[in-house]
Design a protein around this nucleic acid. Sequence first.
DNA 1: TTATTTACTGAACACAGTTTAGTAAAATTA
DNA 2: TAATTTTACTAAACTGTGTTCAGTAAATAA
Lengths: 203, 203
Amino acid sequence: MGSAERKERDRQEMREMILTAAKKLFIQEGFEHVTIRRIADEIEYSPATVYLYFADKDTILCALQEVGFQELYKRQQVLNAIKNPAEKLRACGKIYIDFAMENQELYDLMFIMRAPMKKFLEPHEWTLGKQSYDVLRETVQQCIEEGYIKAQDPNIGAFSLWALLHGVVSIFIRDRAPMVPKEHQGQIVEKILGFAMEEILDK
Amino acid sequence: MGSAERKERDRQEMREMILTAAKKLFIQEGFEHVTIRRIADEIEYSPATVYLYFADKDTILCALQEVGFQELYKRQQVLNAIKNPAEKLRACGKIYIDFAMENQELYDLMFIMRAPMKKFLEPHEWTLGKQSYDVLRETVQQCIEEGYIKAQDPNIGAFSLWALLHGVVSIFIRDRAPMVPKEHQGQIVEKILGFAMEEILDK
DNA sequence: TTATTTACTGAACACAGTTTAGTAAAATTA
DNA sequence: TAATTTTACTAAACTGTGTTCAGTAAATAA
């Protein structure tokens, strides 16, 4: 009677195949080329089969979004080694912008795209996102406690910093700054992070 | 032989009818319900007719984007009455965030959506956007000249402020901050503007 | 009055996401 | 082993996109 377990294992394998194919298409060809039919081609099954493993396209995008949050959270782990809160905050910002600029399609899906958010609106688990956000919020909190930031509310502080960094990278990712050539974008993102750090931190 | 002029006038009227219909759908029903067929219904012509006045859907979205930039620029005109650069900068920010939060669908089209940007990528006229951006840049410039800001480069300064404000409003517009209830969003946007002003301005 | 240009549309095409009816293989039961 | 049921899968279709094209009727020009 161990066949039920094998079934479940096979099912998970299939789900991962689909996600892997979707991610590959997503990164290599961009969002607009991620179609159920292309995913089906990639895994060598029919389009209808995809629907036996995922309710609809948005659900696949949600799952992919979670993969993105896992990767971001993983990068954030190096922060545990940094004790000084000011340094830690700067590193936290750096990790965020590097992740964004190096994985633009994935970042877009996680923080900009409309598609996969319908599912999340309700009580649902934005858990993964919260996990990453908490890293930032706690670092800001630490900066306040140890007197590196004069600001009072860690929530507003963390949110402002997030907004600033998200603002810069999303302007570039969605091509809203034609006055800035692509090859200067990374440099400007870093400069703004440094600028923000000087303004926020007291020493 | 004045018929050629009337023809041109009729043509412009038709273009405006289409844009008006598109804008109405856009604002009342949201982007996903703006289809060529719905626009055609609205103006009581066939879908094919729309293509006699606009090359494709993206071109219509571009035109709508320009309408948005006109509206933003129009709001910015009240800034001319403000002489003190610090006050002016704050008002400039306030106008921006008010416009964004009051016209979320339009703001989305102007600053977030992917669709209408393919056309703009080349040398093309991002003129309207530049016009509005220059208002901000010149205000920052003025603040620097009159010693209200210690920062050296007006470009980085203006861009940072834009990024911060765009970051906040776009996080809300694309529902990426489930921890913030809708009724508090406006309040937070304002708080962050105030926060930024305190940090940036020297007095 | 005739010829030509203009403004418009019905019908189709290609391509999405998604559903459904059916099939062949595997698993279960007898 | 033989019969039955369940499972895994797919071909084909449905709806709804953006877009094109051949044809038509009215307005204009000759």
